[in-house]
């Protein structure tokens, strides 16, 4: 996950807005195939790359042509990491809904929505800034400095 091309920061912001809407719809309807689709979207952004990620493509086709070009660039690594976090929540949520554990589906989706909304509304990437905290909670955090 190094030496990746920098990206137009408005692309991920747009993606976060779409993600927020999708997750609200999932919660409202409980229609889990949509969450499964969102999981795939996260997976592409996380494990393949930001460029082929569906919402980035959407941004480039529909939104970017209407905006002023910007010189502002953002490094891709934090954004990829955010997609990994989203993927984890969405995957758990999909499994929850699909196997009838609706409460699990709702909670996991709500957590993903929480992070996506913070990103969309405040430009705040929860997973990125809390990376240290997440790492500390994970089992291998015991390693000495």
């Amino acid at each position: 996950m190094s030496a990746q091309p920098a990206v137009d920061p408005r692309g991920p912001r747009f993606a976060a807005i779409v993600t927020t809407v999708v997750l609200v719809v999932v919660l409202a309807t409980g229609w889990w195939p949509l969450l499964a689709a969102q999981t795939v979207v996260f997976a592409i952004g996380a494990f393949v790359g930001l460029k082929p990620a569906p919402y980035s493509v959407l941004y480039r086709l529909l939104v970017a042509p209407r905006l002023q070009p910007t010189d502002e660039r953002e490094d891709a690594a934090p954004l990829r990491f955010a997609q990994v976090v989203g993927f984890a929540f969405a995957l758990v949520g999909t499994i929850g809904y699909a196997f009838g554990v609706t409460a699990l589906g709702i909670v996991a989706t709500a957590l993903a929505l929480f992070a996506a909304f913070l990103n969309a509304a405040f430009g705040f990437c929860l997973g990125c800034e809390m990376y240290l905290l997440l790492q500390r909670l994970s089992p291998r955090a015991g390693s000495a400095s």
Binding site: V24, L27, A28, T29, I106, F114, L118, A121, F124
Partner: peptide, 23 residues
């Protein structure tokens, strides 16, 4: 219905957290 309420609560919570973090 539960899901919709959860969505609303989540967004309210995110707004609060976002404002706190921003400040």
């Amino acid at each position: 219905m539960t899901g919709l309420i959860v969505a609303g609560v989540t967004i309210v919570a995110a707004v609060v957290v976002g404002l706190v973090v921003r400040s």
